Amino acid sequence: MSRFSSFSKFATPRKPQAVSEVLGRTDAFAALRAGVEQISALERDLAQLLPDYLATNVEPGFIKDGTLTLFAAHSALAARLRQVERRLLDQLQQRGWPVRALTIKVRPRPMAEPPAPKQARMTPAGAAALQALSRTLAPSPLQAALAKMAARHGKPSDEKK
């Protein structure tokens, strides 16, 4: 018997609820929901109005006192955004956005993890062939590189004996 069994007769099982339903319950959540919906609509409009390379690297902020803040991923994109600022502002106003000015700021995105370095895999036969080739060459940078590569990928079978 569970140690919580005495409580189970008082608790009713809860049903999953939609986030939109939960956010609409209180005034604070309703304001949050409205802000999220506004940013989502702005993102959709910016995706339609800007070229792809800009739309994927620009994030809208909130509209405050008629000024919309746009965040660019780096300074070169911010400069390009400033070049199309007047046209973008006009198009946003035509779509009904209460915007009188744009502020463009740079908000760098976190660097993505660099891909893991490639790890070459070589069979013992391949390593043995490299070792044999390096023995036939005169001392040179190529000969040293081949010997080092063969050693790194495993000893040839004749040296294991």
Rank of each mutant, 00 (worst) to 15 (best):
1 M>P: 03
2 S>V: 00
2 S>F: 05
2 S>T: 12
2 S>R: 15
4 F>W: 06
5 S>P: 00
7 F>A: 11
7 F>V: 02
9 K>W: 02
9 K>H: 11
9 K>E: 14
11 A>L: 14
12 T>M: 08
13 P>E: 13
15 K>I: 05
16 P>T: 08
16 P>K: 08
16 P>C: 06
16 P>S: 12
16 P>R: 11
16 P>A: 15
17 Q>K: 12
18 A>R: 13
20 S>G: 08
20 S>C: 06
21 E>K: 14
22 V>A: 12
22 V>C: 05
22 V>M: 11
23 L>H: 04
24 G>C: 07
25 R>I: 07
25 R>M: 07
26 T>E: 08
26 T>N: 07
26 T>L: 03
26 T>F: 05
27 D>M: 07
28 A>S: 08
31 A>R: 11
31 A>V: 14
32 L>Y: 14
33 R>W: 02
34 A>G: 00
34 A>V: 11
36 V>T: 09
37 E>M: 13
39 I>T: 10
40 S>T: 07
40 S>Y: 09
42 L>W: 02
43 E>D: 05
43 E>W: 08
44 R>A: 15
44 R>F: 12
45 D>N: 09
46 L>E: 04
48 Q>Y: 12
49 L>Q: 13
49 L>Y: 06
50 L>H: 02
52 D>G: 15
52 D>H: 10
52 D>I: 00
53 Y>S: 09
56 T>E: 13
57 N>E: 12
58 V>I: 15
60 P>Y: 07
61 G>H: 03
61 G>C: 09
63 I>W: 01
63 I>F: 03
64 K>Y: 03
64 K>T: 12
67 T>N: 06
70 L>R: 02
70 L>P: 01
71 F>E: 05
72 A>K: 05
73 A>N: 00
75 S>C: 08
77 L>Y: 01
77 L>G: 01
77 L>C: 05
78 A>Q: 08
78 A>S: 14
80 R>S: 14
82 R>N: 13
82 R>P: 06
83 Q>T: 09
86 R>T: 11
88 L>C: 03
89 L>M: 10
89 L>Q: 06
92 L>E: 02
93 Q>D: 04
95 R>L: 14
96 G>V: 04
96 G>N: 07
98 P>K: 09
99 V>H: 03
99 V>N: 01
100 R>D: 10
100 R>W: 02
101 A>F: 08
104 I>A: 05
104 I>T: 13
106 V>P: 01
108 P>C: 00
109 R>M: 05
111 M>P: 07
113 E>Y: 09
116 A>P: 13
116 A>G: 03
117 P>M: 05
120 A>N: 00
123 T>V: 04
123 T>C: 03
124 P>V: 00
124 P>E: 13
127 A>G: 09
128 A>H: 08
129 A>H: 06
129 A>C: 06
130 L>R: 02
130 L>N: 02
132 A>N: 12
132 A>C: 03
133 L>M: 12
135 R>A: 15
135 R>N: 06
135 R>F: 03
136 T>I: 00
136 T>M: 07
137 L>H: 07
137 L>M: 14
137 L>Y: 05
137 L>N: 07
139 P>E: 06
139 P>W: 04
141 P>W: 01
143 Q>E: 10
143 Q>A: 13
144 A>L: 08
144 A>V: 09
146 L>P: 01
146 L>Q: 00
147 A>M: 03
148 K>W: 03
149 M>Y: 04
149 M>R: 12
157 S>K: 10
158 D>W: 15
158 D>P: 07
158 D>C: 00
161 K>L: 14
